[in-house]
Design a protein around this nucleic acid. Structure first.
Lengths: 329, 329
DNA sequence: CACAGATTTGTAATCCATTACATAACTAGA
DNA sequence: TCTAGTTATGTAATGGATTACAAATCTGTG
């Protein structure tokens, strides 16, 4: 491997001068600069980031933790993160945790051991204790999901309010029995969205029925399908479904079709996230849209600020109800 | 930050001894080992990978290049890569290139500059020249898509054969006019699958019709939908569609429904990849299944071998035709 | 031409961990 | 008890780049 020393020798200057050329410092004569650049080209030299980073004690690498890349919800957020990070001189690397504490710890270690400068966590199943401990000495930002009172800055939307609006919409178009397909209550967003659901029902004097609330063990289509099956086994079936994610909603839709029922005529559905698929289903899915790109952008901005020692404030962004065919009156 | 020196001082030993304890070497007395471990705990010491990696000139990081995380095709492959890599003592980091040469170059640079030990490229739009040049001095493996005659090892399936089988299946159940929704011909897999399509038609004395072959500019649903629209505008419409990816097939399905036609009664469809969503559509999608997990596993194995200086051979794995509702006779 | 002041270049310390080699401590056998 | 042979520990060089500070070169003015 070529080192800065060999370049210096080849160019007949000192390593300091080579370093100056590399870092674009102006205190180098045009003549010397050219000598150095020639040497670099001739030797095909690539400065080792390991050396540089060790000296500067930074890596300019940001980690983005996601539970699972196959959940399209993250896609647009990551876009926002990436564009912003690159603009600020950082690279991002995606880390799939598979909701596995061990794997998560591997990535935490990368930060502890200086191979990365900070983390944007989007994993709702993250081990909060580890995260909080890590945040004591390292730059961490939470995006979408967050640990309450952790002191770790986050970017998110008002989940309760969004769910409230979704259910309100169902009520407005005449539904009186509305089921909730929720994910595991251990997730903050799940609890918040359930609160919104309950608030909407209560405000309209519709009683809560335990049998209309199903919790799933996962987020795949298949869990939505199972949940729907369970709901349809009841004698008095609901006329509308609010699912806390589009994936679950799409699974539910599948099951409704399987049983020969029609959407929205027999049962209306609302999802959450506005993933690309949600516009490909038949009928297209009414859903809640989060400002994903903006969220990513904000998270990246905040993380870099944090790395550079600034204080940052948490952010709650606006959402939107996107009405499509699955809730047409 | 705590360094190995401070630990050594705290424990009353030399840095060499601390390093030995860290690396689990046996030439350390139990007594000293305990002293050192206590010091490490007390000071909350985390060895810097930057220092270690500089010395060892390795990073034990593997990069996985994908064009877009929102394409679920990659999900299971990555799983295979990740599990294998971890077993072999490496971590993987995902890099989304967005089919953007500049962004791709950022990740190539990470390898050139020693921040990563190797790359598994799954981007069909990768700049082949850059990749070949990079492979001269660095460990690279191609997965799924590959550059012919590049000399860079790859793992893939026989795309032409797979496409041939898919179309053969359509012919067998009685179809005589079969359209092809293909992606851009610049992709190797697109050309190979088209060859398979043509071979099946020719073998059955069915003429090729240019108007039945549509090339898309992208891989999203929407492109499949557009392509289908174009196909359905013709006077004599086909009775079956072979799409080179499930995403395109699902877009096509959507358009067929939009126009009030039924699948498979009016038009049959076959996709490619067996992504999770292909089983959620209505009707479920006949498709080609690639051994994704195996592909990932093999790619990771090969990459680590390559990093360790071994020679590796390219691999062609088996595929499978999965017959579902969209082609029920 | 000499000299102060500005500009360019070089020397060597530094970042942190690993490891070859040297040295110290210990063991066992005579 | 002494010595040869092990085993444990320490010293210092090493990896590659950056940078404070020192030294050298240049500029312009009296």
């Amino acid at each position: 491997m070529t080192t800065i020393h060999q370049v210096a020798k080849q160019a007949g200057v000192s390593v300091a001068t080579v370093s100056r050329v590399l870092n674009g410092q102006n205190s180098v004569t045009a003549k010397t600069r050219i000598k150095v650049e020639d040497a670099i080209k001739k030797l095909n030299y690539e400065p080792s980031l390991l050396g540089r980073n060790l000296r500067n004690s930074e890596s300019r690498l940001l980690l983005v933790l996601i539970p699972n890349i196959s959940n399209p919800f993250y896609s647009e957020i990551i876009n926002g993160i990436e564009n912003t990070a690159i603009e600020l001189g950082y690279n991002i690397l995606l880390c799939e945790t598979d909701t596995n504490a061990e794997r998560e710890n591997i990535y935490f270690d990368l930060v502890r051991k200086k191979m990365a400068d900070g983390i944007i966590s989007m994993d709702p199943a993250v081990n909060t204790d580890s995260l909080i401990r890590l945040a004591e000495n390292h730059a961490i930002i939470q995006c979408s999901e967050y640990a309450v009172d952790s002191g770790i800055p986050y970017v998110t939307i008002d989940n309760a309010q969004a769910a409230y609006r979704a259910v309100k919409h169902l009520i407005k178009i005449g539904h009186q029995r509305i089921a909730l397909i929720n994910s595991d209550k251990k997730f903050l967003y799940a609890r918040q969205r359930q609160l919104g659901y309950q608030k909407a029902l209560e405000e309209n004097d519709m009683g809560l029925e335990d049998s209309l609330i199903v919790h799933t063990k996962g987020l795949d289509f298949s869990y939505g399908q199972q949940a729907m099956k369970k709901i349809l086994m009841q004698k008095e079936r609901p006329t509308a479904i609010f699912a806390v994610s589009d994936l679950l909603a799409i699974g539910a839709l599948k099951e409704i079709h399987n049983q020969g029922l029609r959407v929205p005529e027999d049962i209306a559905i609302i999802g959450f996230d506005k993933i690309a698929f949600s516009n490909m289903t038949h009928p297209t899915l009414t859903t809640i849209s989060q400002p994903m790109y903006e969220m990513g952008k904000a998270a990246a901005d905040m993380l870099v600020k944090k790395i550079q020692g600034e204080e940052v404030e948490s952010l709650i962004l606006e959402h939107e109800l996107v009405i499509r065919e699955s809730t047409l009156g």
